[in-house]
Nucleic acid binder design. Structure first.
Lengths: 353, 353
DNA sequence: CTGTTAGCGCGTTCAC
DNA sequence: GTGAACGCGCTAACAG
């Protein structure tokens, strides 16, 4: 409510008055600094509690130069992966007494926003967590931030980050399919928004190619689809393949590796509608171990999502505390195959190669 | 203070010097205030751009008393409903030049956090968006905030809010099932965390009861399950019913109304595992029109989620601008039945009543 | 139209 | 162990 004039905002002086000490002492006492007698400290704490006093972050920031807030840049927040990472980060950020600022990036913000944000962030937050920051967009602008930055899901040279090795993810997924006996393996996941410079999709595709190459399986461009990360794109991509195949299984892949669980879910949906049986006619594997993946019996390459947020947040806050550049540290987490029911050996089918 | 020493931070005085004007003029020019000549304004803007200057929000907040930030309190953020609302809110908040602070509440924060946050928020943000704020927890503490508050998904007397009428939601869902010919209708959604004071689940249940009553269908406690909102709870609730029924359809409901799409998805999963056919043996309806509901062919009572966030954000920022209490306004959005494939008339089955 | 003066509410030197 | 003065960077109220 707009203050209708009553109940004057209580500041440090009010507390000081009540406690019978000076503002300086209040400041020291409340922040747990040494050099305050036990009784004084208690007096001050009681007074502060009674008045419901909280130091103004703005005023504190002005003198100390630190805002007690960290910024989280994310391309989306309603996408499960991001919201889960943020939730994890939020845990430790809040725990350590910092606030969390949310900055849209990419999808919501449009390309240019990245630079604007960069400057706004500068004096707003003590550190930045960058989720899947588009490498293409802000090579320098993020460095010029001059505040600690830690990335999740992608790496910027010279900057600390947490991620799973996405080449390994792609390799593991594809190897699983190959191990099952598949040789016509599709990849649904090339990124149409490559302009943003996300590397996740490209890396996973590299892992896919690597696994094929190691097993002397030729790369077939017809088995590759552009999807990005939306659910619907998975559906569309499989339908497209199906139509190009003349609505027959003959030239379809026997298995597909979807770039994310969400895309995989879209693929499963399409398969059901098209009458393609999973896993008999088509094996499907995704990535993430999405909270809902098990509902689809979806085999996936799982990654610790909330933990990535937690770890990244810890690294960031440590840097913030040290107030020193700190040698860039990259934490690589291990992905793991989670086998469920959407993958199986290919059927022996005379119709197929 | 705590500057690692290099590249001195540029402030308003540096810009003033470069532009050959006073700091006050820089301030006026950059904020688009009247009373600045066109040429001067251009000079200042160029100088600011060249130096990459951005006003310190902390300093500005100190003098103006406004932080240009709004806080979003939410019990979870990785739950689709909340992340979607936040995304919608973020759109308009960012558009209007405000930052978004994220505050955990309930689940993550534990009961007491609500009060702590309340005080911290006070001087941190110009307004607060409360998503499903637990009525029980903070009757006064939110009022004492003394800054504008707008709620989403629940209503606090005397406070503006946006929501769908959850009684109506429950009524619509149940009526749909009754209209199909069902009479043994279960409700899966009582909230174990009722201590938080969420009203959503209880309201939907009231709508359920109302629809039953109007159709002279007696309430059967055996058909009601406690789930809260997690997916797994939906699964567990149906399994429990199944076991209590001696693993037969005989005493099972012919249809269930799940309190959310996520719970409904859990129910569908359980049904599949138990060999209960949907919709032949069991109709299922959820609430939300979750982004993924269509993947399950889930019939649902849809509500505009992102729009609730957008509208609430607009209402909040309007209040912030006015800087006046503004008469509490409650916007009720209309839910709508979205018919897909998980609901159908009950089978005539001699085994069942 | 523009510059000058005076704080905003704290944290931080120093003295005491 | 405690208090008094000063300044953080900016905006607001005046003066010119």
């Amino acid at each position: 409510m707009a203050d209708s004039g009553f109940a004057p905002m209580i500041g440090i002086v009010e507390v000081a008055a009540l406690a019978g000490v000076s503002p300086a002492t209040v400041s020291r006492a409340l922040r747990g600094l040494p050099g305050v007698s036990v009784t004084t400290r208690e007096n001050v704490e009681q007074a502060a509690a009674k008045l419901g006093y909280v130091a103004s972050p703005s005023a504190a920031a002005l003198t100390t130069g630190r805002t007690s807030a960290i910024g989280v840049m994310a391309p989306w927040i309603s996408r499960w992966f991001f919201s889960a990472v943020i939730e994890g980060a939020q845990d430790v950020v809040g725990e350590r007494g910092y606030d969390t600022l949310l900055y849209p990036l990419g999808a919501n913000a449009g390309a240019k926003a990245a630079r604007v944000d960069t400057r706004a962030l500068h004096k707003r937050v003590d550190g930045v967590l960058g989720l899947n920051v588009p490498l293409g967009l802000q090579p320098a602008s993020l460095r010029n931030l001059r505040i600690p930055l830690v990335t999740v899901g992608s790496i910027i040279p010279g900057v600390s980050g947490v991620l799973v090795d996405d080449v390994e993810v792609g390799y593991a997924a594809t190897s699983h399919l190959i191990g099952l006996g598949h040789r016509r393996i599709g990849f649904l996941g090339q990124d149409p928004d490559n302009m943003y410079g996300f590397t996740v999709a490209a890396d996973r595709e590299r892992g896919y190619q690597k696994a094929l190459a190691e097993n002397n399986i030729p790369l077939d461009p017809a088995l590759i689809g552009v999807t990005g990360f939306p659910v619907e794109a998975g559906t569309a991509a499989l339908e497209k393949m199906w139509i190009e195949c003349g609505r027959e299984l003959r030239c379809m892949p026997t298995a597909v590796f979807a770039v994310s669980d969400e895309v995989a879910m879209g693929v499963l949906y399409a398969a059901r509608r098209l009458g393609i049986r999973v896993p008999e006619d088509l094996s499907v594997i995704g990535v993430d171990n999405h909270d809902m993946a098990y509902l689809f019996e979806l085999t996936t390459i799982g990654q610790p999502v909330r933990d990535q947020g937690r770890i990244a947040a810890r690294m960031l806050l440590d840097q913030v505390r040290l107030h020193e550049p700190a040698a860039p540290e990259v934490v690589r987490m291990s992905p793991g195959l989670i086998t469920r029911r959407t993958t199986a050996p290919p059927r022996r089918d005379p119709d197929r190669p």
